[in-house]
Amino acid sequence: MTRRHDGTLPVNRREFFALGALGLLGVSGNVPSWRRIAPQGQDSLPGTGPSGKLWDPSRAGRPFEPVRAADNDAAIQAIEKQLHCTCGCNLDVYTCRTTDFTCGTSPAMHRRVVALAEQGKSAQQILDAFVQQSGVAILMAPPRRGFNLAGYFVPSLLILAAGIALTMVLRRWSRAAAPAAAAPRVPLVPASPDELERLRRELDRLSV
């Protein structure tokens, strides 16, 4: 089955709702799927050969530079994942530059990271350089010092404290309930087959 992530399905309204219902039921895409290439309206580059000019480059967004080795460098990516892109996207630099291809901020920050790395600076020195310039908000997570420690530890400490308190309360309750539970009970006598059958029927009816 073809699964499309296309905003404009070539279907009428009825088919659209049917597709929606199928999608909700999880029928669509249950099998490994492929996008089939839809017949295209126009070939942009008839006979122009490999890497020919585009028919209208302005439609494809801003022009790109070819990828360099540094772009795929795991160390560079690790640094960029700790830096907050300042374009307002709320993403880290690496995610933004490889996602929002209209953003001019994250590529500029990436170039700066690469330049600093090429100067021989360590990851921490690069992060420090960004913090010096833009403040700690440039980091994806606050540095672990001062009041920020509260950010990291308050939830865990509160949950721990609540857990301890809960354990103590439960223990007190269960101790208080223990004497009642230990009270002598009426000795059990085996039930007759009729009684057991009656019990089964009732339990079945109650689904307990």
Binding site: P32, P63, F64
Partner: peptide, 24 residues
Amino acid sequence: IRSDLREDLYVVLAGLVNGTEQAV
């Protein structure tokens, strides 16, 4: 996106180099 039960292949066209078919 190409999905199967084990993994997804997720391909994004970032952009094109100098108005040519050379793509990132």
